[in-house]
Structures are given as C-alpha cells and as structure tokens.
Design a protein around this nucleic acid. Sequence first.
DNA 1: TATTGTTATACTCTATAACTATA
DNA 2: TATAGTTATAGAGTATAACAATA
Lengths: 156, 156
Amino acid sequence: MRRNKTNPPAPTEGDTALRTDATTSLVGYRLRRAQLSVFQKFLAVFDELKLRPAEFSVLVLIDDNPGRKQTEIAEVLGIKRANFVTLVHGLEERGLVERVPSLEDKRANALHLTAEGKAFLTQAQARHAQLEEETVAQLGGPAARAQLLALLDRLI
Amino acid sequence: MRRNKTNPPAPTEGDTALRTDATTSLVGYRLRRAQLSVFQKFLAVFDELKLRPAEFSVLVLIDDNPGRKQTEIAEVLGIKRANFVTLVHGLEERGLVERVPSLEDKRANALHLTAEGKAFLTQAQARHAQLEEETVAQLGGPAARAQLLALLDRLI
DNA sequence: TATTGTTATACTCTATAACTATA
DNA sequence: TATAGTTATAGAGTATAACAATA
C-alpha cells in the first residue's frame, strides 16, 4: 500500500486539487461512501413516506415471517433487542404493526402487519423496486448487480 | 421485486429459520452489512492504536497534502467542518498533528503531521496494508478487488 | 437459571445555528 | 458579504446494564 511520493501535486491556477488516491483506493472507504450514497437516495425517496431503511427491512421481514418474536426479527437485522423496542413501537403507533401477546410463550410478542401496514408496505415496495431499478442501471445491468452482491458476500 | 409466496417456510425440527431473501437481496442492505463487517475488522485491528477509520483517513490525507486548511481536508472526506474540529483536536492532543496558523490567511490553520505523527502513520499503514491483503484474499484476488471498486464507483 | 421485553443510560456520528476574526 | 474555525446543541444509531414477568 506504498504511495508514490516522487510526483507532488502539480500546482495549477488558483486552488490546487488534493491528493486523495491513497485514501480513496481503500476498500473500506469506498464501501462506506457507496453505502452512504445509496442510503441517501433511499432517504430522499422515502422521506415522503417517513420510512427509514431499518424500518423498511422490519416491515418486509414481518410480512414474510408473520407471528415471529421481536427478538427473532431484531437478531436477523443485527439490531439489539433493546433498540428494537423503540423501532417497533414507532411502527405500532403508526398503525402498521401489531404486537400480539404470544399464546405459547407469555413473555413474547408475536409481530404482525396490520391491514394498513400491508397496504403501506405494498406502496413502499413499489417505490423501492423503482429505486433498485435505478441502482441496477447505475451498476450497468442485472449481471453487474449480481456480481456486486457476490463480491459483497465474500466480505461478510 | 415480487417475492414468491407460494412456498411457505418449511417447518423443521425446533426453531424454524426465517425468510430473509426479500431483505438480503437488496443492494443497500448488503452494502451496509459488508461495510459494517469491514469496519468491524478495522476497529478490532486498530483498537490497540486507538485509531478510528475517519482518523486514519485524516492522517493519510494530511500526510499527502501537508499545509492544507481544515476545511479542505474535511470536505474531501465528507465531514462537516464543525465536527472536524473535535477530530483534529484529538489528533493534536495526541501529538500526531500540528495546527499551524496560516501566513496567507490569518483565519485558517495549516495542517501538518508531527514527526511522531509520521512515525505513527507508518505503523498504522503497515497494519492497514495487512488488513487490505486479508480483504483482497477474502474477495478472491486483486482482480476481484478492482472489480468491486469499479462497481462501487458507479453507485456514487 | 435463562430468556423476553423493557427502561435507562451513554457514547459515537452526524447536522444545524450562531459566534469571532478575518478576508 | 463571505469564509475559517469554533462552540453549542440536537438528533440518529448503537451498546450495556438491570429489572419484571415468564420459561
């Protein structure tokens, strides 16, 4: 990872550009910037629906796994159960999610989408599908997207 | 992005695995998980040196661009100048960075690495080189790394 | 004893407004 | 007027400890 220090930044007219190659060539740095960029777009698109990335994931996950405990949903997403409480509470207050006391385990809450929650998610997923389409276009097609996902997988 | 709901999660023995495909196939989600994973490794390796990713970037950037203003370094990294103050102050207190009052512009500080800062950075970069090597190995070689960086670039 | 949901709390990161001294 | 650095502050996101109810 040695940088070439033999050629200093060539002074141009007024302001001189910075040497950023040593920083921007790092995998972690580039991953962070790309992730921030994608999330920025998500936030812009979902500002109207007042939905954050984590909330979207939770809704999708509950829709695909109705009746699961809070702990189970939280763990899959890497969210601490203590922090998950606030997140689910917000979704419940908006009438999107129901916390049904579990019959088998009186300690647990079974999570379900309400009818409104399902309708909301359908809308959200339609918007997100558009966003993913744009992302795929940015990447250069479905094959490029698949390639990216495969590479990202190896980093986990 | 329609999910297939015809085949419900097959019930196994005790606990049943969750359906996570709809969530985990999203580019943003996978980017975030991969980025977190890479940063976790960084934090583990650099815990001993008490150096955070942003601080590492700042040191590298100052080393390659000595004498630049705080605003310039901060902007390249996407850090607000207000938050950059605390970051640089920490590095200065550790004796790694010097804030030299600029001669041309009395408002500005020119940033430099101290001798200790340079020695420290050399060490840090050696460790980071190892970390990048491991990352490249994870990805499957330098070609795979180049491919990943190219794909990430298209998302910005 | 262990687990579920919860509260309280703290720490990092990030964002904005407002001030000062210079330009 | 605008900019550089700074302070104060507020909001997310994340982490841990401890508790009550239940297993």
